[in-house]
Design a protein around this nucleic acid. Sequence first.
DNA 1: CAATAGTTTAGAATGATTATAATATAAATT
DNA 2: AATTTATATTATAATCATTCTAAACTATTG
Lengths: 142, 142
Amino acid sequence: MLKNSEFVSKLRNSGLRPTKQRLKICEVLFNRDKTFHFTINDLAKNISKNFNKKISLATIYNTVHAFKDKGYLKEITISSDKSYFDTNITKHHHFYDEDTNLLIDCNDNEIGKVNIKNNITGKKISSVEVLVRVASDYQNQN
Amino acid sequence: MLKNSEFVSKLRNSGLRPTKQRLKICEVLFNRDKTFHFTINDLAKNISKNFNKKISLATIYNTVHAFKDKGYLKEITISSDKSYFDTNITKHHHFYDEDTNLLIDCNDNEIGKVNIKNNITGKKISSVEVLVRVASDYQNQN
DNA sequence: CAATAGTTTAGAATGATTATAATATAAATT
DNA sequence: AATTTATATTATAATCATTCTAAACTATTG
């Protein structure tokens, strides 16, 4: 639950001008108790419902990518045609419910630490992501 | 290293007619010692180089998807704009080299078993995938 | 060998994302 | 506080991977 003035600093601190559009998108994304997952399409719909002034789709794309680059969002790719963004930027893993197409955050109680015994020589690990796909019992298994 | 007649049975057994195009694609994908990763684009290029007769791009898409549906290929999504297919259909994880855009298979020596302590109620796990992104030390970290 | 069911094809359609370039706004400078 | 400069927004066009279409072709069945 952040205030408008906090979003202004947040944006300024990372070199982004605090425009009306960016502040509105901050409000929609970060003025909440819980983190959540969304697609660009979800966000665009949300804004058009809850904001009297229209924000151009191009601006929504630009802003989401800027926020991702600045580390305010993480992108989670489920399949080539489904890309989600996550306002939870801490290290964590996901369940993906194939019945409902919903992403669910895992916490450390649910998935233990991934044990990487060997890495590629000369390389540094930049991230470790686990995706657990789940479906109802009666569904076809992949 | 499979022979043409083996591909014919393989296709017949899964209800796919052994057409010239499918057999050629089988040869390119499965007539090898080692499994590998490819994109649709890689495959299309490979075929146009090594096959005198052209295979339509639509057929390449159809065939790759049919092979995936029949379980001969696995799809690995790295980001919304990069989708790879893997001829290794056993359970395994991947390193993704952000410098070279190359996928590398992990074996159990490299990544230990993922410990899933809790699952979503009423759901069955259909797959568990780990993706370890790596990059040279001097690269920017995400 | 004829019938039919499935496959391939080129090209068109789709749809998500990105580019463009004119306009608007924010910040810096005077 | 007016002017200049840099940056952001916008509508629209362009792009590009993928999917669709429906006509022509091929494999299989009887």
